[in-house]
Design a protein around this nucleic acid. Sequence first.
DNA 1: CTACCTGCAAACCCTTTGCAAACCG
DNA 2: CGGTTTGCAAAGGGTTTGCAGGTAG
Lengths: 135, 135
Amino acid sequence: MSDNQRMTKQKRVILEELERVRTHPTADELYGIVRKRIPRISLGTVYRNLEMLAASGRIRTIRTCGKQRRFDADLSDHVHASCIRCGKIKDLPGGFPIGRLDGNLDESEFTYIATRIEIIGICGDCKREEETREG
Amino acid sequence: MSDNQRMTKQKRVILEELERVRTHPTADELYGIVRKRIPRISLGTVYRNLEMLAASGRIRTIRTCGKQRRFDADLSDHVHASCIRCGKIKDLPGGFPIGRLDGNLDESEFTYIATRIEIIGICGDCKREEETREG
DNA sequence: CTACCTGCAAACCCTTTGCAAACCG
DNA sequence: CGGTTTGCAAAGGGTTTGCAGGTAG
């Protein structure tokens, strides 16, 4: 967390692309996007930069359904809608329906950083796919 | 999700132990616990049974901070407090401060299943450890 | 200059899976 | 009995890391 971070071309492009997309891509998906601008970038570099950007608070990592981590450059409080089938995440319009949620928290036993709210469900694409398959 | 599940000794003990512990153990932690009662059980069996129990809705899986999945036999709505350092999860007293949260949801585009709320922070153990290390 | 960062590839580690034997109902 | 489940071990797949060369400041 010592912020001796350099703004390299790779880091800048990764951040730009993550801010641009509306999805919450996995490292691998972002790798595919960034490679259009930096063809010789490596997946390891993408991971390292996402890690650094998260450590310095410029982006957030999301772990929910699915085995892969996802990343979000939108730091505002918003609710995520996660699909248990495909793991994709969409944002819900409107902010948080609650506040800081640290009321009944013993600060000596837990230092509050943030609240996360998500709804779990099945997205339209996966639902339609299931209906097709099951007839 | 076809519930042709048999109640084997392994599955029963895994469920019993998961219901008994107050933590939200990883598969590996639960493996260590269950092995006290079934010494020759394998980690693969623990994973398979947790998967089956989750598929039939008897337990829940949690993915948050940390790379390992965690499991929870408490199906009631409760807020999780996750430590970003060690990945451990504790329950917050009291239920959910909000309701179903599917108000501004287009049901044709997302089938609602559940709401998850967690707070992110640093637990007492990790905080004390950091204070010791940094002087 | 030089400490930090990159690309590459191998290592890591959690999780899943194939198989023959064991077991539940 | 017949289809599930188990233990074992190997495979899988996302993420991390060591290293030598490259680069920001």
